[in-house]
Design a protein around this nucleic acid. Structure first.
Length: 341
DNA sequence: CATCGAGA
DNA sequence: TCTCGATGG
């Protein structure tokens, strides 16, 4: 699940309003996972239509995207392409963890322990091709740009941000910083009240802004050194990192060593230099169009209500808000265009 | 995640 | 008007 360097990263809480008028590239899979794991009943069952097809992600995408648009934020969703070969190990590890969680989910259900059941159900969250296709279809109907990354979505989002085509990359993970995103927004798809795991306590979750330059200057590192640090503590491509090395130690090592990967390469099964190269120069594409169009309201009603049993009243209400938000966005884009001259 | 409505 | 728990699909 991304790089465990959160404790080293300076970040500042912001308000949604601070992102008014900004375009952001959202890591679609990251968002979909969040929706799938949080939008559930208390026993952990996800939302489903009458045919048993999961709809939690559609609900989350639909309402959250509308809320972002209403806040004047223009989201583009970036979907993963083919994962790099050296991610296989991590993907297998995740699959095993999910299968284990699924067993525990069933056990907790049988005991009638709903709290535990929900916890493990969340961990058992799986994303398949069908879910992705449905998500893309909904976003396209909504007139929201869908970007297909050749490889990692985070890398593509970072590229778009570094080009200045979007203000920031949005994800829970810090990987896009390694990929060179000048700005990262966290908590964009899960802002609001959230239950703390374990305790029955709710906290207000606000979006966080992470600025790459500030990260680097506060840690006194270059981006290359930050990548090396990440590789020492573990990335999706070398899960677990180097045994016995946590963020603190890793920071010392990369600060003082010219080539920190060298002495750890022999005790590592994976090619650490290949990982570094991947973070520095990931496959990305220029083939994307960032255009927010009028939603296809009839298509959305057909898709969400007829096919997936959403409430017509709620969807129509959402569409009304979306239509207004798109119009307001147009207006503000036009204004700023005239302001520049 | 979101919305909704009951009850303070 | 606000908070909270249930429900949505």
């Amino acid at each position: 699940m991304g790089v465990p360097i959160g404790e080293l990263i300076p970040k500042k809480e912001i308000e949604l309003e601070n992102l008014y008028g900004k375009k952001v590239a959202i890591d679609a899979l990251n968002a979909i996972y969040q929706f799938l794991s949080t939008i559930r009943q208390r026993d952990g069952t996800p939302l489903m239509d009458s045919k048993g097809r999961i709809t939690s992600h559609l609900s989350g995408l639909f309402y959250r995207t509308i809320n972002l648009m209403e806040a004047g934020i223009k989201p583009a969703y970036v979907f993963d392409g083919k994962p790099p070969e050296f991610k296989k190990k991590e993907l297998e590890k995740r699959k095993e963890a999910r299968e284990e969680a699924e067993v525990k989910w069933r056990e907790a259900l049988a005991r009638g322990d709903m709290e535990e059941a929900r916890k493990y159900a969340q961990r058992a969250t799986r994303v398949n091709e069908m879910l992705i296709e449905d998500a893309k279809k909904l976003l396209e109907l909504m007139g929201i740009p869908v970007v297909q990354a050749p490889s990692e979505g985070e890398a593509q989002a970072a590229y778009m941000a570094s080009k200045g085509h979007v203000y920031a990359s949005a994800s829970q993970d810090y990987d896009s910083l390694l990929f060179g995103a000048p700005r990262l927004v966290r908590n964009l798809t899960m802002t609001g009240k959230r239950k703390l795991p374990g305790k029955n306590v709710y906290v207000e979750v606000k979006p966080e802004l992470v600025v790459l330059d500030e990260v680097l200057s506060s840690l006194k590192l270059t981006r290359e050194k930050l990548i090396e640090l990440a590789i020492l503590v573990g990335t999706d491509y070398n899960p677990g990192g180097i045994k016995g090395i946590g963020p603190k130690k890793a920071l010392e090592i990369v600060r003082h060593s010219k080539d920190p990967l060298a002495k750890f390469q022999k005790q590592s099964e994976v090619d650490l230099y290949a990982i570094k190269e991947f973070f520095l120069n990931p496959p990305v594409t220029d083939e994307y169009k960032l255009q927010w169009k009028e939603p296809d309201e009839e298509g959305i009603l057909k898709f969400l209500c007829d096919e997936h049993d959403f409430s017509e009243e709620r969807v129509k209400n959402g569409l009304e808000r979306l239509r207004k938000a798109v119009k307001a966005g147009r207006q503000s884009t036009l204004e700023s265009w005239f302001m520049k001259r």
